[in-house]
Amino acid sequence: MDLASRYRGAYQAALFTAECVEDAHRLGALDSLLKPWVRREIALCEHSLNHCDSKMDLADAVSGLAAIAPRYARLRRDLFSDAHHLGRPEPPWRKVGPTFAVRAPLQVWRQPPAYALLRRDHGSGTAGTQSWEFTVFARSGDPSEPGTTFTAMLFPDSGIGEGTVQVVKELQNQREWYEQLDYAFLALGRNVGLAGLYDPDRGQHPPPIPPTD
């Protein structure tokens, strides 16, 4: 078997592994984001062999491809346990990739929502702004649940970490959801401020009190 055929076999094995762990550890509504994400990650490696000029390049390409499926399998096992297994700490936000995080709360006693934060633009917008999507899945166990998605705009701000996140009032008023948005950015290692949050430790202050007549 030639090198190209062997690499193609590794590529197909990564896809097959992803399919098997998805069938074994089903994650309801979160799968609408997780399944496309892992397939995009694997697809990015599909033609890596074409860019290999040395044995070291080949080793890096194969290692990168081979690492995706085991990492994805561990993530799904952890999320499945977060949602279904008692006797564990409060489920944390879990980092899927550099710009993607999800949270699957315990579903045993009640049915709290699941959450996801994903950067969509993957490039800097005007003046360095970034566009993110924050999705709340009210029926997190239902794979057909579309969720409610809010756009979160991250604006550079020299006084507050990496910048300030602005969202619509509808999300700000849902304080539990708004709190989870803050935790999501923290899980990704992003030190941001939320425009509607008073946090003096991050240099944020309460909004000015309007003048009275």
Rank of each mutant, 00 (worst) to 15 (best):
R139M: 10
A116Q: 03
L171C: 09
F155Q: 10
L117E: 02
P143F: 11
L181T: 01
Q111L: 04
A127D: 07
Y178K: 06
A101T: 12
H122A: 09
V167S: 06
A104E: 02
G159D: 15
G125F: 03
E176D: 13
M153E: 07
T129L: 06
Q107F: 02
L117G: 03
L154S: 03
W109Q: 11
A127M: 05
D182R: 13
R119E: 06
G128H: 00
R119W: 04
A152T: 04
D121H: 07
F155C: 10
R175M: 10
R175A: 14
N173Y: 11
Y178G: 05
P98V: 14
G125A: 04
N173A: 12
T149Q: 05
Y115R: 05
N173W: 11
W177A: 15
T129G: 03
V136F: 02
L171A: 10
G125T: 02
Q180C: 07
S140C: 12
E162Y: 05
W109I: 14
S144F: 15
S124H: 10
H122W: 08
R139I: 08
V168C: 10
I160M: 05
P156T: 04
E176Q: 14
G161H: 04
G97W: 09
A101C: 14
A114D: 03
S144N: 15
M153K: 10
Q180N: 11
T164S: 06
W132G: 00
Q166T: 13
Q172D: 07
E145L: 02
D157Q: 07
Q180T: 09
T149L: 03
D121V: 10
V96C: 09
Y178R: 04
Q107R: 08
A104H: 04
V102H: 00
H122K: 09
A138Y: 08
G123D: 13
D157I: 06
E162V: 04
V102L: 01
A127N: 05
W177Y: 15
V102C: 03
W132L: 00
E176L: 15
L118Q: 07
V102K: 00
R139Q: 14
P146C: 00
P156M: 04
G97E: 11
F134E: 00
Q180E: 14
L106R: 10
T135L: 03
V136P: 01
T99G: 09
Q180D: 08
R103H: 01
E170N: 13
E170S: 14
W109A: 15
G163M: 11
A114C: 15
S140A: 15
E162F: 05
E179Y: 13
K169E: 12
P146Q: 01
